[in-house]
Design a protein around this nucleic acid. Structure first.
Lengths: 244, 244
DNA sequence: CGAAACGTTGAATGGTTTCAACAAGAGTGG
DNA sequence: CCACTCTTGTTGAAACCATTCAACGTTTCG
């Protein structure tokens, strides 16, 4: 039972909870306020407090924190179907900034609407809770990478994870994917200097694992890269719905 | 309107959502199956899939991931009032291990009971969603530390965050707190070698900032430490309830 | 007492950063 | 059209932070 065109979020949540028609309708009702944003202009500034979150419909977004010394740590990238700023809304302080990498389209969701939706269909709350937990699992994996993987494995793991995530929304495959990120993005995400990112990418390319060039990631040796990164996509993949 | 003795979780959630008596009752009903666990014996093994989560009532717990090369990355420490293994249950795969650091007491919560509770009182779902988001905020801060702070600031930030968290449940103050962690725990949490942790602690002690010795953390210069770590507790502190 | 866990210190090694330059492409205004 | 700037990518050499290896001290506990 699908609507003509399921939104990316609906598709994602349906993998976890078999949503009834009523619940789908409630979810669809949240997708009213469509908006567009330009690349580079912050959606949410670090420090301000917001009362609206967004669901990304199209484009790439980066969540980051600026340190007092000016350096930047990228927490995560969002792709279509992901929430933007939900944590800021719930915690009532935006501890991080959110910036579109390219021009994007997103749906504005007021907290009040979301909470109202929970009242109507508690199963939706469970589904959202699942989505938030999945996001946390990705952050945790990212954390492990920063703490205990060397630069090469970190890069390999990152490119693979992004590949799986994109594949789940039809934007990538085992061959590779289009990727608008710069080496500076990679550096700030992986806790490296841009210079070293360049060296790492060269090493991986010359070793025949993966090529990152002009907005395109190409997996030259997928299995080899998986082995190098010790990549296990279990935390990303939902094989079957948890709730009937 | 309080029960005789509010559980740590109830206290934490009440800071976010003003829970009605009905909701408090539902929450209390979750606190049935009390259990004890010994220090050092895993509650949840990495890889197995569980159907029960826990709410920590007493003691310290560590969540970690073991890397294929045998090294360990600690994701977070849990103190009373925190959830244990909720993410494992929701994602249906335990991507991490959970180990009591000391003997602990915890309450077992079946997913089914939790979801049932959501059906009865959707506001409780919102409160739990807040708690999960707060956990995620801590993981994010941890991630930033690993990516963009040097060893000294990382250590300082970690000790301060733990202090604030413990203060919120009455187990610490600006003077310091009792801390059962070893230097090995710190090393695995901060992505350092145990040897280097030792050096960092010595430096911080000799510089008059903080003393970590024999199970006791003592802040010798709280303000100085805050400055060194660029510590901002905004993400931990809930000044006022978000929901009436 | 002996063993095990935890803490402490020095010296050598190495991964990563910083500093300094240079190259290539895109967009802009003259 | 060209010069100009800005962004992104690339490379080398020196400096540094943190790790590894190795050893020893300390405390706890059966």
């Amino acid at each position: 039972m699908m609507t003509i065109e399921a939104s990316p979020l609906t598709r994602k949540l349906s993998a976890f909870v078999a949503l009834s028609e009523t619940e789908l309708a409630v979810l669809e009702r949240l997708h009213q306020r469509r908006k567009s944003f330009c690349a580079g202009r912050d959606l949410v500034h670090q420090g301000q407090s917001e009362q609206a979150a967004y669901i990304l419909a199209e484009g790439w977004v980066v969540s980051y924190k600026i340190q007092p010394d000016g350096s930047r740590q990228i927490v995560d990238f969002q792709i279509p179907g992901d929430f933007l700023g939900l944590r800021s809304v719930l915690l009532h302080t935006s501890d991080h900034g959110i910036e579109p990498i390219v021009d994007i389209k997103a749906v504005e969701v007021l907290v009040s609407d979301l909470l109202q939706a929970f009242e109507e269909t508690p199963r939706l709350a469970t589904a959202i809770l699942w989505a938030v937990s999945r996001d946390e699992a990705m952050v945790v994996e990212h954390l492990v990478g920063l703490g205990r993987r060397d630069a090469d494995a970190r890069m390999a793991h990152f490119l693979l994870e992004l590949g799986v995530r994109l594949s789940l929304v039809g934007m990538g495959s085992r061959q590779g994917y289009a990727c608008p990120l710069t080496q500076y993005h990679l550096a700030d995400a992986l806790g490296l200097s841009a210079i070293h990112v360049n060296r790492v990418l060269r090493r991986l390319r010359e070793a025949g694992f993966v090529t990152f060039r002009s907005g395109q990631v190409t997996f030259d040796d997928y299995e080899g890269l998986v082995a190098l990164a010790h990549f296990d996509p279990a935390y990303l993949d939902q094989t079957r719905p948890l709730l009937p």
